[in-house]
Design a protein around this nucleic acid. Structure first.
Lengths: 158, 158
DNA sequence: CTATTTCGTCAACCACGTTGACCATCTTAC
DNA sequence: GTAAGATGGTCAACGTGGTTGACGAAATAG
């Protein structure tokens, strides 16, 4: 299975990484929907995390995610519309509009973390805890440069 | 690095899988652009592979990729426009329009496979060949259900 | 006080997905 | 052999997530 196409061993690795990611994300959102967050989309968790407990501005959010301030602003719009973020004026700078996580957003974030912990535990049950840790360590070694970049129109790239 | 946020160990795994995937895909396309395929986008490799040497129809391509026939048709349109796919009438069924990989498409696919092999070899050099194989085996165990699905508006998911 | 930078937004556009509708063609059933 | 149904392809409208360019309002630097 790992080398699904023996003639092209290299093709398997990216496909497997994507499939592993999607497996976790799909499971997460199935469970989130069950727990009262059906509107939360895969991207949203990343954005909520990037906003953080202290809030940010759209421009800074864009920098954190590696996307334009306009794209960040539109994503914030959508999350405001479904009640996960709110915008407040910055009293110290009339140009800035602080973006903050609402209680509902914090709830979704907390549940996401719990669900991910449970999913990771499932992986550990199946593979053995040391295999999961080894995978994380190795991926950390290879992928540190792309840690949190989301500049991905459509899919990934470009 | 593997447990970037010790309070939320579960968050690291999906992020690492995505980062690993993106690292490979970004490196692939940087090299493909250097080798004369700057128009090839990340999605395209998956589609070209799914078309295969014998060709397909848009409807069947959609089924293979887990997307609608309309979406598959539009993607084929774009790949035809840049010369990687061609459409020919099926003499045995006037409804069907066979989609085939052009020589240019085959060249891109062949180079992609070669580049992926080199990237995998880089991972093996850094981590050790057995670690890469172990990662592939473990991911294969956990992710077999999401092997080739691309039904992903925007990013990944519904 | 003026010049520059910064923040947010608008507008147009592209890539990639969705559903619904529709026509043309092939297949099946009578 | 023809009527009815299934299948393949396309068009249209739309949603999400990305891009650039332009521009006004407000802060900062000189």
């Amino acid at each position: 299975m790992a080398t699904a196409d023996p003639a092209r061993p290299g093709f398997a690795l990216p496909l497997l990484l994507l499939a592993g990611f999607r497996t976790l994300i799909d499971d997460l959102h199935a469970e989130l929907a069950r727990e009262g967050h059906p509107e939360l989309r895969p991207l949203h968790g990343f954005v909520l995390q990037a906003v953080g407990a202290d809030g940010t501005t759209a421009t800074e959010l864009g920098q954190r995610l590696g996307i334009s301030k306009q794209a960040a602003g539109k994503t914030v719009d959508r999350l405001v519309a479904v009640g996960y973020l709110e915008r407040v004026d910055d009293p110290s700078d009339a140009r800035r509009r602080l973006v903050r996580v609402t209680p509902r957003g914090a709830d979704g974030l907390r549940r996401s973390a719990e669900i991910f912990d449970r999913l990771r535990a499932q992986w550990a049950d199946t593979l053995g805890p040391e295999r999961v840790t080894a995978m994380e360590d190795d991926l950390g070694t290879m992928a540190s440069a792309n840690w949190f970049r989301l500049d991905v129109p459509g899919w990934f790239g470009g």
